[in-house]
Amino acid sequence: MGTVFEETRAPSMGQEEDNMAKVTLTVNGRTMSGECDDRTLLVHFIREKLGLTGTHVGCDTTQCGACVVHMDGRSVKSCSILAVQASGSTVTTIEGIAAQGELHPVQAAFNQHHGLQCGFCTPGMVMTAVDMIGRHGGALDEATVRHELEGNICRCTGYHNIVKAVLAANEEMHGAARQAAE
């Protein structure tokens, strides 16, 4: 949590204004600001104020994971965080992981192994997989991947090809890292 942040609040002018805040986030490398109600969820801020609609809402009980983004380097559920809580942090969304239009290895693996069907849970799955592969440093097996996917629900794929894609991406990324190290 290295970011120093000074929150700018709208001038207090009665009840309504008191519930408004200016939220500043660094999203996918760009600093973005917007006004919103204090009660606005991060996911709605990202979708509606920033127009980044790749992050989805699939449930209302913090379970499905369609809303997963990375906040200050950790995967979080943006449906259960207020935008003001997140203000000052660095956020990466699904729109921000393909460098120069080149698919991230996780995205490529999902494509190659048919790890998506309707695509709705996919952004959360991909963000989760990127985080998972990063945290485990190459040491992933099927059981671990399945356990790590506990916070992401998919109704289309039966997870079979998602698990396959995550393991393949893990191999691709850590295989490449091993090669580079040699």
Partner: peptide
């Protein structure tokens, strides 16, 4: 507890 994302918050 919860899932990886919940555990981060």
């Amino acid at each position: 507890i919860g899932d990886p994302h919940v555990r981060n918050m």
